[in-house]
């Protein structure tokens, strides 16, 4: 399965129209600005679980440098836009991840990094591991790999940025919004 990418279609543009005279002319630029701002300022939550967290740190480190894309790490969920779940999720940890997700302000995004967070990874037959973080939080980008290389994570982040750029900003409706179509990176199925 490749990466799902949809260019903005005419119909999609039409659907953004608000039925007031000249509405689109007002709304569209505002939306563009909001999309641009959100996309370019993805602040991530300092939250690592296991091996992938080390690769996440490497991604922020000099050679890969996430700051280039305006991505900095914030320690508190209140100031974060994206949660990178980097590592396996145990039954004991799952409620806390759910709580962290709930504590983040909208709009919020989740990147499942590594095989464990995507689908349980090598621990699929363990009874204490949740088979994928998408069992309790909506995931926007799945980055496979064990652990994924930093380049892979950056790819996922860039894909997420593209997705945000296509997102319908003004009527964004939490988890039920249609844009919640996941992007899958690095899965060779």
């Amino acid at each position: 399965m490749g990466v799902k990418e949809k260019p903005v279609t005419k119909e999609e543009m039409e659907s953004w129209r608000i039925p007031i005279p000249g509405g689109a002319a007002i709304i569209a630029p505002v939306e563009r600005v909001a999309q641009w701002a959100r996309k370019n300022s993805l602040w991530s939550l300092t939250f690592g679980l296991s091996c992938c967290a080390i690769e996440m740190m490497s991604t922020a480190a000099p050679r890969y440098d996430l700051d280039r894309f305006g991505m900095i790490f914030r320690a508190t969920p209140r100031q974060a836009d994206v949660m990178i779940v980097a590592g396996w999720v145990s039954v004991k940890m799952a409620p806390y991840i759910k709580r962290l997700y709930d504590q983040m302000p909208e709009p919020k995004y989740v990147i499942a990094m590594g095989g464990c967070a995507c689908a349980g990874g090598p621990y699929r037959d363990s009874i204490t591991i949740v088979k994928g973080v998408d069992h309790f939080v909506p995931v926007d980008v799945y980055v496979y790999g064990c652990p994924p290389r930093p380049e892979n994570l950056i790819n996922g982040i860039l894909k997420l940025q593209d997705k945000i750029a296509r997102e319908h900003v003004l009527t964004r409706n939490g988890d039920r919004a249609p844009h919640r179509e996941p992007i899958i990176i690095g899965e060779n199925a």
Partner: peptide, 16 residues
């Protein structure tokens, strides 16, 4: 023998 609850937030997880 774990008793699977099917709830990802509590209790043992299904093997699959």
């Amino acid at each position: 023998e774990p008793v699977f609850s099917g709830d990802p937030l509590h209790g043992p997880q299904e093997r699959n």
